[in-house]
């Protein structure tokens, strides 16, 4: 009896967590998926009627804006954060004496809540008393910087704040990558008289491909989930000019009382995440098991 118990204790200890994940992750995804194929509005209805919600979603100009914004924000956020992170990492890698302090400074925004970041940048970028008035105070009277309240440019302020928050983290990833490159190869290249820039472009950076991939995954994931930053910085406005899928979903779920739209937009978000993450996770897990 005690032998049987001993053999099954691990399963029993793991069981509650597994059950929770099964129900609250997979069960809930299934529920949301189901609802996205029904006529649900204020209350969930369980009768499947087809792809009506998705059709409504894709003719909605607001969803169109949200997807467009995700594309603009995602692309710029990922590219700029990666370039900035890589440059900072390479510069910090030149045996800088104050590296520890600088690293701490570059990375601290990652410890902040997106709401705090949004609040700070909303103040800095506000056209009345922010950067605009600072530059005007320096004598450039006609300087204008009103992106925050300009429907056409407001999404770029989200990029500014997002990059500020996440680029230090990319720097940390790249720095760890630079440090793990085989020193012997670099020494050999130096002895052969290969210039530094070439050593970076031909040896070091290509060997960091996995780090590029994982920073891409992390940043893409952050971009798709971005919700708090937009809420705090622009509130999705002016109008719905800076809506992202995450804020669209929230608005439908909690202010418009349109569960069907909320569910279908959430499902689209999940599909986008899966399209990026699944191949990555699959290859990672397989590499580990081999």
């Amino acid at each position: 009896m005690s032998d049987w118990l001993e053999r099954h204790v691990p399963k029993m200890v793991l069981a509650p967590s597994f059950a929770a994940i099964l129900l609250f992750v997979y069960g809930f995804i299934a529920w949301t998926g189901w609802i996205s194929f029904t006529k649900s509005r204020l209350l969930p209805k369980y009768e499947i009627i087809g792809t009506l919600q998705y059709e409504r979603l894709f003719i909605s100009p607001r969803w169109d804006t949200a997807l467009n914004n995700l594309f603009i924000f995602g692309a710029l956020f990922i590219i700029i954060s990666m370039i900035l992170g890589l440059i900072l990492a390479i510069m910090l890698d030149q045996k800088i004496r104050t590296e520890g302090v600088l690293r701490t400074i570059y990375l601290y925004p990652m410890a902040l809540s997106m709401i705090v970041t949004g609040t700070a940048w909303k103040w800095i970028l506000n056209p009345g008393l922010g950067i605009e008035s600072v530059v005007r105070g320096w004598g450039y009277e006609s300087f204008s910087f009103d992106w925050l309240v300009n429907p056409e440019y407001a999404i770029y302020t989200v990029v500014i704040a997002g990059v500020w928050q996440a680029s230090g983290f990319v720097m940390a990833l790249f720095l760890a990558g630079l440090r793990s490159v085989d020193e012997e190869i670099i020494k050999a290249a130096q002895v052969d008289g290969i210039p530094t820039s070439r050593i970076y472009s031909a040896i070091i950076i290509p060997s960091m491909a996995p780090i590029f991939l994982s920073s891409f995954i992390v940043l893409a994931h952050l971009a798709i989930k971005s919700f708090d930053l937009v809420i705090a910085l622009t509130g999705g406005g002016p109008g719905y000019a800076t809506d992202l899928p995450a804020t669209y979903m929230y608005t439908m779920a909690f202010s418009r009382g349109d569960i069907g739209q909320a569910a279908s937009s959430a499902m689209v978000m999940m599909l986008v995440v899966f399209a990026i993450v699944v191949p990555y996770l699959y290859s990672e897990l397989r590499a580990k098991n081999d």
Binding site: L14, S17, F18, I21, L22, F24, V25, Y26, G27, F28, I29, W31, T32, I35, P44, H221, I224, K225, F227, P245, A246, M249, Y250, A253, I259, A262, A263, S265, A266, M267, M269, M270, V273, V277, L281, L285, N289
Partner: peptide, 25 residues
């Protein structure tokens, strides 16, 4: 056990929007 681990790992990545409605209920 490995399957369970993969399933839990996967749970880290989902956008939480997809669980908010049923969780509220």
């Amino acid at each position: 056990a490995n399957l369970i681990f993969s399933m839990m790992l996967f749970g880290c990545f989902i956008p939480f929007q997809v669980v908010i409605l049923p969780m509220a209920r």
